[in-house]
Design a protein around this nucleic acid. Sequence first.
DNA 1: TCCAGAAATGGAAGCGTTTACAGACTGCAG
DNA 2: CTGCAGTCTGTAAACGCTTCCATTTCTGGA
Lengths: 348, 348
Amino acid sequence: MGLAGIKDVADRAGLSIATVSRALSGKANVSAKSRQLAKAAADELGFVPSYHASSLASGRNHNVGLVVPSIHRWYFSSVVEGVSGTLLDAGYDLTLYNVGDRPERRHSVLNDFLLRKRLDAVIAVALVLSESEIKQLLAIHRPIVGIGGALAGASTIRIDDARLARTATEHLLGLGHTRIAHITGDAELNQDFKLPGIRRAGFEAAMQAAGHAVRPEWVVSADFTIQGAYVCARNLLAAAAGRPTAVFAASDEMAIGAILAARDFGLRVPQDLSVIGMDGHELGEVFGLTTINQDARGQGALAARVLLETLDAGAKRPAKGTPPSAAATDREYPTEFLVRNSTAVPPA
Amino acid sequence: MGLAGIKDVADRAGLSIATVSRALSGKANVSAKSRQLAKAAADELGFVPSYHASSLASGRNHNVGLVVPSIHRWYFSSVVEGVSGTLLDAGYDLTLYNVGDRPERRHSVLNDFLLRKRLDAVIAVALVLSESEIKQLLAIHRPIVGIGGALAGASTIRIDDARLARTATEHLLGLGHTRIAHITGDAELNQDFKLPGIRRAGFEAAMQAAGHAVRPEWVVSADFTIQGAYVCARNLLAAAAGRPTAVFAASDEMAIGAILAARDFGLRVPQDLSVIGMDGHELGEVFGLTTINQDARGQGALAARVLLETLDAGAKRPAKGTPPSAAATDREYPTEFLVRNSTAVPPA
DNA sequence: TCCAGAAATGGAAGCGTTTACAGACTGCAG
DNA sequence: CTGCAGTCTGTAAACGCTTCCATTTCTGGA
């Protein structure tokens, strides 16, 4: 009961194992009657094929690995959600590798878990892999898709962080701000995580292009959480005299932290302080946060779809001599500039 | 390269397949020299055992399924993080089933994915399973652990939601509040999700025990997010006259939504309005939120440890006739009442 | 030196499927 | 009536490991 094998089904249906297998997996060349018989017997016995046996025999795993640096931050949990939904709909399993910030875990995931030939493909989120790491992954002949991180040699889905950060900064500049602070991400959080640097570069580029100096004391970093940004924004805003008139935060959560800090000082947003974020966090609405909306969930879903297509098209079983996977494509995911009311002209 | 089989390793090491297998999996009765030889050859060839083959042969999957209703809400992502860390450390994979609120997905996960004999065990978070569903799962002879949800017949890890909700309410009552509102969870969000009802029952019990009527218009429901609670707290606080003096929210995120709403109305917390939450969300600190701290991450880690112990102790391969899994234990996870400064005596 | 017992080894039988292959059966054109 | 393409079926060979069991090689005490 519950442990019936295909043999039991075959016996019960009065068919051979092969026919039952074909019938249940929807293959051609099975008479309607046999198919019916097999299905009925399988139902009665509660038969579910053993995935290991089936994978071993067919070379297909129906399992995709997802590597994320964290699961708490908005961006990552959104991506996971998108990937998960698409995979589940396709009958695929999702194996989650929450690498976190511990380097040894990163190492074991990359050098052990991912290589166990148990995954049809790997999706890596915001993970910067070295060339040799990518080679290693491609060596097991599995497609890789990167989201939000540059993966040389693998397909990627990303937004143009540098340009968007520039756009956000230019929005503030366009309103007349010149005293602009930037909340960036912690570098030490995860050595892999290049994104904060890219966004900051966009900020700095825009400032320089407009002829404004970037004041180092106005570039502070937090851990991408509301609470983290709150603390550092308080420091930023503490000096009543030389206070910035606008803040560009590298994520919506950090922008919200800044808004909360501003409120503590009695600063009105946007009259006294403009704040712009980046992400499209649902909570931004509550704060009327101006931001750049990126559909993280959609990015995850797209990544999964891309992989599924590759898998459907691709060779059944990675052959010993096959050249590494298909052409790497780099897609830019569409974003939307969302002007709400956390930004305005600077105070007189 | 990367696709070497154990046979290749054996050839290279000049040993038999059997010895190599024993050597690499750390079994006894292998000479130091052979072990060394095998390891060296495996390294050189980049050999990683095929998980399917190894699972098929050994009956061990090194893979635990985790079923969650969502991944966005604090509680769930914290649990996932806890489970993930513990499993990764033990060399286990985590297969994530993000069921969401779509019933058909719940169905396919429960009746298809989980039964594929690919999981050594299942952890279900806040999932209320029917008896037949539990039977079905136990029928495949895999241990199940429930977190935060009652699973008759399976081991569970939970907090005493009813009592804690009572405690939270009593804290407000003890301060002198009588006009207490409650923000509960959406029932329609997920039919499985009984927790909001339990917490509400605790609230109502405390109110009644203190001889105070529960005003139906002061029991409102939101979706467990800050933004959702914000909206409904605004409605709650809109009526200047008959306004509650305290709010007990069924989660910290919702309590924070209430605090934000209060600020919009110029209400000071805690002078004009006391707010108490429940969870121990990191963000609560920023708001000085009084709450009941439950270590969701720890609960996840504990669940994983319990399972791993069961698996280590348990029979290697579920036999056809074996009685369903070990004795179901029900553990209450410790919590901590965290008084910060969002609660005070009611205004005069 | 010999021998019992322990330690190490290799052969081979699974594990539960999928699928190539070949055989058996249909129906239909020649 | 024969032959042939087509459809359906079953046999058996993978898939790549683990592990039982029999065999060989070491031990160290007598």
